[in-house]
Design a binder for these strands. Structure first.
Lengths: 348, 348
DNA sequence: TTGTAGGCGTTATCAG
DNA sequence: CTGATAACGCCTACAA
């Protein structure tokens, strides 16, 4: 491959000038610029990202940590691919590449080493769990001043940069949609309490019910683990009290669909189904029978936002530019959800 | 952060020795090794991947090119996340990181620059299209001797390294499953002919029908674009000749489910449905109503295989070691599929 | 078994 | 506006 020196020789300039032209820095005489461009095109010269990164001590990589999912279909892949796409789009806009890593099942990830080794300039963490080891690792990151952003999980009493959807409001909307139609006995199939997401949904449910002059009935509170299977299991409980239950709100689509399946397995006909509202508006929602109403979460946009925040942060934020474009830079930022209404929740 | 020099000083050795110990190369006196390890742990020293890559002129990154998917739900995200996980698993085992890129909608990707810039040491390409620009780009890669592997697409008359599933056999199995049960009028909803995958499925269908002493009936051949919507559209045709059609084989689950939806929209009852077999065995298959029989594709394993081949190739294959572990290194390799039978295709 | 020193391809600083 | 020239942090012969 052509070297920078060859380009310099061909263009009749110094190597430094070649770099200046290619990086668009410093004042350059137009003719010089032209000569350099021509020469480098002719020779097919491409600067080495490796050398560049080394010299700048910037990898140019945006790290993305994904939970370990393969084969364990707790969450829909939809979820992650949307976020990843959003992140990728912003990264590309800023000339950064995506370095994707999967969290290993047991062990806690050593986030700081990722930065120390200079593999990434910033990092987005998806699906962090709220356990001790994880928290400690994140605190260390924070302490060392590495730019990182957590998606889809909130750590109370920490001031991590976080991006999430407004699950309180999303859940409230879902409940309101049901109560507005006169449903009074709404079962809520939530996910594990260890996810901040689950807690927020419960809050939203409470608010929604209160607005309709109702209270949470703990006998209508069920817990699954976000898998379809756990929905099927919850169906047992729901089927048993089908007289009292006239609607089901599930914390994600998979569980909602699981409940539907469970009811079907028990021979319950669609016309006898309670109303259903799911969550995520994954592609499974529109594929469900009946089509599942669901709370749409702007995963793609969340990915974009997280990436933007990080990039604008790690790309030298001067004292003057801070607090203008990204006021809540270090704070938690929530994107709005939207209720998508389909047949499953409409009174017939 | 602690520098290598500090470690060397603390351990009372030269910097070179520090590197040797940390890289496990060359003969080292046990005591020296211990001193170095201690010193580096004490100082929290972590070698810079940047500098290391630069010195070795190896990025340590395995590139993965993904098709541009966001919002266009032609393929299931399931598909990609499985492959990505498989790739990631093998990459990790070999100390490589994943550099993920999304193909931009219009333009052809400049694969060679990826290598020239030294961003990646090897590259896996998912969802390549068989158009002229793409082919040319791939040929150039080949010519320059860069290690790359194409997944899920076959280029005739090229000897690219390719990994795919055996779609001929998978489709044959699906058809046999149907004919074995006595279904004779099987509609085949295929994807666009521009994907080698589609062509292979058609072949499999032909073989399967022939085995049952039948021929392909071109009036039963439909084409969609792998989206659910296209399945819904195909349902119009199928509904119109429901007397003649007793089974439907679709080239992926989304389309199969789309057809089911289309039939439902037309008021056709489940008990009057033709038998259905989908393809991919994505999570949507088991969520479908009725649960959809489908040809399982080992995406995860395909990812592992592709990564393995590349890694073993780019990690110095000597003349002696070649043609032993990976006989078909530069050839096409197919993994077996498996028919998963669910309610949708069982005669009632 | 270990130290020395050159080189990797850029960036960036400092003269000119 | 442009040309030298030090870093950058690590790897790896080569020498000892």
């Amino acid at each position: 491959m052509a070297s920078r020196k060859e380009v310099a020789d061909l263009a009749g300039v110094s190597e430094a000038t070649v770099s200046r032209v290619l990086n668009g820095v410093g004042p350059i005489k137009e003719e010089t610029r032209r000569k350099v461009i021509e020469a480098s095109e002719q020779l097919g010269y491409v600067p080495s990202a490796l050398a560049r990164s080394f010299a700048r001590s910037k990898s140019g990589n945006l790290g993305v940590v994904l939970p370990y999912v393969p084969k364990a279909h707790l969450f829909s892949a939809y979820f992650f691919s949307e976020m990843l796409s959003g992140i990728g789009s912003k990264a590309r806009d800023n000339g950064m590449d995506l370095l994707v890593m999967f969290r290993t099942p047991g062990e806690v990830m050593n986030y700081t080493d990722l930065f120390r080794r200079q593999k990434v300039d910033a990092c987005i963490i998806l699906g962090a769990r709220d356990d001790y080891g994880e928290l400690e690792a994140l605190q260390q990151l924070q302490q060392e001043g590495h730019p990182f952003c957590i998606m889809n999980q909130h750590f109370d009493s920490e001031s991590f940069m976080e991006v999430d959807a407004d699950h309180v409001e999303g859940s409230r909307q879902a409940i309101r949609h049901l109560t507005d139609q006169g449903y009074r006995n709404i079962a809520f199939l939530n996910g594990p309490d260890s996810y901040s997401n689950s807690q927020e949904r419960l809050q939203g449910v409470q608010i929604g019910l209160n607005e309709a002059g109702m209270q949470v009935d703990s006998s209508l509170l069920l817990e699954g683990n976000y898998s379809r299977r756990s929905g099927v299991e919850a169906a047992a409980t729901i089927a048993a009290q089908l007289d009292e239950i006239d609607a089901v709100f599930a914390a994600n689509d998979r569980m909602a669909i699981g409940v539907m399946h469970g009811l079907r397995e028990r021979g319950i006909k669609v016309q006898d189904f309670p109303a259903f509202v799911g969550y995520d508006d994954s592609d499974a929602a529109e594929m469900a029978v009946p089509p599942l109403s669901s709370v749409r979460v702007p995963f793609y946009e969340m990915g974009e936002l997280a990436a933007s925040k990080l990039i604008h942060r790690s790309l030298g934020v001067t004292a003057s530019s801070v607090n203008t474009d990204f006021p809540s830079e270090t704070a938690r930022q929530l994107l709005p959800t939207e209720l998508i209404i389909r047949a499953s929740s409409i009174r017939n």
